[in-house]
Every structure is written in structure tokens, then in C-alpha cells.
């Protein structure tokens, strides 16, 4: 069957199997920032945005995202300039092995779109479905709070 959707803003048509997961389809078309960590919705490494909401791509039937806009970490940078969340992660030492980073970034995009000024507890709560194998949680939380500040400054 055909799946028609946009991926990081690019209209995309891909032939999929009826039972294929969104994670497997995205990785197959080259979006390898979508990490296969557990393949059962426990770890959050495959988190992507579907119409703006972060979901575990491994738990979504690809056929169900027909007509939607899917966002991955690969769509965050524009014209060679990193997204403030990415810059904050790099500058703040929030990336260790990096495996969980793309998923955490998508969770953060979802959070900041609904809550531009989260407190630390709200960031911790939002990240609660994303597991860092290096157990580095403090730096990502600091980076998201810093990026939230940058984004607010840009808007004002």
C-alpha cells in the first residue's frame, strides 16, 4: 500500500507493508536518527512528531500517518544552523553516546510548543519516557531549559 505524508516538510510517498511500523518505514527511507532502541515503546529513542505530538514511532502503524506531517530530529536544523535545542545540547554537554538524543529532542520540541516556559519538574516529566543508556539526565534537562530561554528571547 502507498503511504503519502510529509517527512521534515518534504512531501513523501512510500510503498509500505500493512503491518509496518512508522519507525521501520522512517529508517528504511534514510531517517536513521530515528533509533531502534527497544522496539516496544519503553525507551523513547524512536520518538518523532506526528502532527506536532511526540510519539514512539515503533508503536505506530505507518498506515495510520497517511496525510500527516511527521517530524524527525533531522528536520530541526535549517540552512546549516542548528535549532536552539540542538545548540544547547552541544554547548551544555547533553550528548554522551547520542543514541537517545534525537528522541529527547523531539520530546522537547513537543513540550516547548505547548509550554514555552517549562520549569524543571515539567521538563523531567516530559522526558520520563526517554531512557538515556549513559544515565545522563541532568545535562539534557539543563539544555532544554536553556533552549527554552533562547527561544523566548528570539520571540520577544
Amino acid at each position: 500500500m502507498n503511504l503519502r505524508f510529509t517527512v521534515d516538510g518534504v512531501p513523501t510517498t512510500v510503498v509500505i507493508a500493512a503491518g509496518e511500523s512508522l519507525m521501520d518505514v522512517l529508517r528504511r527511507i534514510g531517517k536513521t536518527s530515528v533509533k531502534n532502541g527497544c522496539d516496544r515503546g519503553d525507551c523513547g529513542s524512536c520518538a518523532v512528531l506526528v502532527d506536532g505530538r511526540a510519539v514512539n514511532a515503533c508503536l505506530v502503524f505507518a498506515g495510520q500517518v497517511d496525510g500527516t506531517a511527521v517530524g524527525t530530529a533531522e528536520g530541526l536544523a535549517h540552512d546549516g544552523e542548528l535549532h536552539p535545542l540542538q545548540s544547547a545540547a552541544v554547548e551544555g554537554g547533553a550528548v554522551q553516546c547520542g543514541f537517545c538524543t534525537p528522541g529527547m529532542l523531539m520530546l522537547a520540541v513537543d513540550l516547548l510548543s505547548r509550554n514555552p516556559e517549562p520549569d524543571e519538574a515539567e521538563v523531567r516529566s516530559a522526558l520520563s519516557g526517554s531512557f538515556c543508556r549513559c544515565t545522563g539526565y541532568v545535562k539534557p534537562i539543563e539544555a532544554i531549559l536553556a533552549a527554552a530561554g533562547t527561544l523566548l528571547e528570539r520571540r520577544s
Binding site: G41, G44, A47, R53, A54, S125, A126, G129
Partner: peptide, 12 residues
């Protein structure tokens, strides 16, 4: 609801 799965799961 805050005790059901993770935010990622609850979004779906």
C-alpha cells in the same frame, strides 16, 4: 492518567 505509561505513550 499521569500514572499511565509515559507522555510518549499517552500521546498515542
Amino acid at each position: 492518567l499521569r500514572l499511565v505509561g509515559s507522555p510518549l505513550l499517552r500521546n498515542r
